[in-house]
Amino acid sequence: MRPMSNAAMNAPGSAEANSSLGNAGLRIPGQPDMWAFVMFEALIFSSYFIVYMIRRAMAGDHFLPAQEHLSQGFGVANTLILLLSSWFMAGSVRSAREGKYDIALRQVLLTAACGLLFVGLKLLEWSDKIGEGLTLSTNEFFSFYYFLTAIHVLHVLFGFVVLAVAARELRSPPRRSQEIVETCATYWHMIDFLWVIIFALLYVMR
């Protein structure tokens, strides 16, 4: 009796599940686990952004004079560098999918190079600001500036490990798991879109 009822329950249910997914050829790139992580991280960062906005709104225009001390050039350069790195990484996933592993590996290395440049520029920018006497406790804007950029850079540093995993997959023929390469790419692009929002919040909004 139980198997029958199970079968009766399952048949329409699973058909419905298939149709609600919507379709042939649609699939989640990489491990869904990584997407779950990305969404959770997005929520944590959102909470930081919202706290920042609330403090900023409460302070009226007090954040603006501090914001004037930021170098827009650094912000824009870093955004362009990260966008470039994401472009390389997306290209790498595509190359790997087509079996062009040499190109894919080179693209991962270029991604890492952009990442290094990003971190280098960030260190330069920080030392620049510290040289001007602007530190974590100078004012609330700079507290948020150092906090948000530092937590983001931590994610970039972790991203190098992720890129190394992708490079390891691409290098040796017996591994070459497309799923792992895509999972790594998903992590790297998360760094990119989080930075895009941080850039707008710290450097350009008024």
């Binding site: 869904p32 686990d33 990584m34 779950a36 992580f37 959770f40 991280e41 944590i44 972790f158």
Partner: peptide, 8 residues
């Protein structure tokens, strides 16, 4: 996913 949650 729990492994990744460790990063958080």
């Amino acid at each position: 996913w729990f492994g990744y949650l460790n990063i958080c």
